[in-house]
């Protein structure tokens, strides 16, 4: 192989054809509220862990919808389960339970 000194840049594009609908259905079964998020960001804004780690419930939900559940799991690692996000969510999503459900569904999938 010839060494060119550069290589194909990887694509950052999300392919929605490749999301795992079965796993997502399992998550919805465990915590149907995941469907209710309207991406307002209240959870992230008030997150105890979020200022010091990449924790964001809003982003984690989005990553899962985009088929990037590993990123979602990484994003929730810093969570303290303090419950502040549950308090501020305008759509009354049980975010604490959602975080646990995400871990349950997607951790076991490894």
């Amino acid at each position: 192989m010839v060494k060119f000194g550069f290589a194909l840049n990887p694509s950052s594009r999300i392919d929605l054809d490749k999301t795992d609908r079965e796993k997502f259905a399992q998550l919805v079964e465990l915590e149907p509220d995941v469907l209710k998020c309207m991406a307002c960001g209240s959870c992230t804004a008030s997150c105890t862990a979020g200022k010091f780690t990449p924790t964001s419930v809003r982003s984690a939900i989005l990553e899962i919808q985009n088929g990037r559940w590993q990123q979602a799991l990484d994003m929730l690692k810093g969570c303290l389960l303090c419950g502040k996000c549950t308090m501020v969510c305008p759509r009354a999503i049980n975010t604490r339970h959602l975080i646990l459900a995400i871990n349950e569904v997607y951790q076991s999938g490894k």
């Binding site: 060119f4 000194g5 550069f6 290589a7 194909l8 840049n9 990887p10 694509s11």
Partner: peptide, 14 residues
């Protein structure tokens, strides 16, 4: 610029 070439190439590849 060589450091940018990977992305030039990636578009052709696409």
């Amino acid at each position: 610029i060589r450091s940018n070439r990977g992305y030039s190439l990636a578009n052709t590849y696409k």
